[in-house]
Amino acid sequence: MTAPTIIPGAPGGTRTTGGARATLRRNFWRGVGRVLRRKPSRMLGVIILAVFAVMGAFGPLFYPAQLPRDNNALYAAPSLIHPFGTDFEGTDVLALVITGARYVLLTGLITAVIAIVLGTGVGLFAGFRRGRWDSLLMRITDMNLAIPGLPLLLVLSTVWKFTSAFEMGLVLGLLGWGGVARSVRAQTLSLRERGFIEAARGLGLSTKHIIGRELLPSMAPFIAMNMLIAVTGAVYAQVGLFFLGVLPFEANNWGVMLNLAVFGGGALTTTAALPYLLAPLLAILLLTLGIVLVVDAMDEIFNPRLREE
């Protein structure tokens, strides 16, 4: 049982630690609700991201592994049956967008998690410890930033087919953590001179405790926003690689659709394949819009000055 903690001004003079934390959580989520309701566009961003999350998680379950084809409806115009028309094989374009979302979104999520975990860990430790550790970790970070991503992926594509979203996310994440590490280190250098960090060091608390319990919670909003931005970057990177034909077309995703629409269907010269081109572009645009609107909301949620305005 948690020991009671004295809270000045609380009814009865005491509350349990668990009760105080529950109250803080309720107040936090109420504040989140107020921020989202203040601008309907922010709620729209949450809805967009929720729709894409559901699409990536459950969308492919509503379609067979081999999507049906209609040889009599090649590049069919948009209709009630095919809202975005069909492709060069008579396959419904909307079905291709939905089934291709899982690979794209899962890759983006894996990339962001790897980049944020590695970048945050390196940046926090280097910025807090300074000295030789800082120099060593920053040289490693500089080497990561100097790695040419496209040539490396060209070489790896001869070995890996990247049919798995984990493989693609792993490579992009290992290539993309350097910028996060630099940003987190800069934030850590600023925070380590604050009074609460000096007090923690004066009490003799361990480095692990100070980083995990003091620095990391203070930087959580910055890290969360960087994670959403990393998802966007990963989506652009993988779609661009598939569009350019750098990676083999072993998996259905939006980049493959763009490549086939432009180089196979001549979407830039004929209107027949234009819906096939616009559907994945619209999906990417909506996903980016949702992330931008949610990041805008997060900035106000975690910034007391903006909440008071």
Rank of each mutant, 00 (worst) to 15 (best):
A76F: 03
G123M: 03
G127I: 03
Q66A: 11
L49I: 12
L67P: 06
L105H: 07
M55S: 07
L106D: 11
T120W: 07
V93T: 04
T86R: 09
V32C: 04
V35I: 12
N72T: 13
N72G: 15
G59H: 04
F62S: 03
I47K: 11
A73P: 01
T107I: 06
S41T: 15
E89G: 02
V113W: 11
T111Y: 14
V35A: 09
L36T: 10
A101N: 10
G90Y: 06
R37N: 14
R69I: 14
A53S: 08
P64I: 00
T111R: 02
I48N: 07
L106W: 15
V35F: 10
Y75V: 03
P78D: 04
T120F: 12
S41G: 14
P60F: 00
I48A: 09
G85S: 00
V122C: 13
I114S: 08
I81H: 13
V54H: 10
T86C: 02
I48K: 12
M43Y: 08
L61R: 06
I48F: 08
N71V: 15
A101W: 02
I110Y: 05
G123L: 01
G119A: 03
V113Q: 11
N71Y: 14
Y103E: 03
D92T: 02
L124F: 02
N71S: 14
M43V: 10
Q66S: 14
A53W: 12
G33K: 09
D70Y: 12
L74Y: 15
A126L: 05
I114F: 06
F128E: 04
L74S: 11
V46T: 11
L106R: 13
G56V: 01
P64R: 06
I48P: 08
F128W: 08
A73T: 11
T86M: 08
Y75M: 02
L49N: 13
F125C: 11
R69D: 11
L118K: 02
A101T: 08
V97K: 01
V113Y: 13
V104D: 09
A65E: 13
P60K: 02
F125P: 15
G59S: 05
L106H: 11
M43T: 15
F58P: 06
F128L: 00
L94P: 06
G90H: 05
G59L: 04
L67R: 07
H82W: 00
L118T: 05
I81R: 12
V32L: 01
G59Q: 08
E89H: 11
P60A: 05
G90F: 03
P83T: 05
G127V: 01
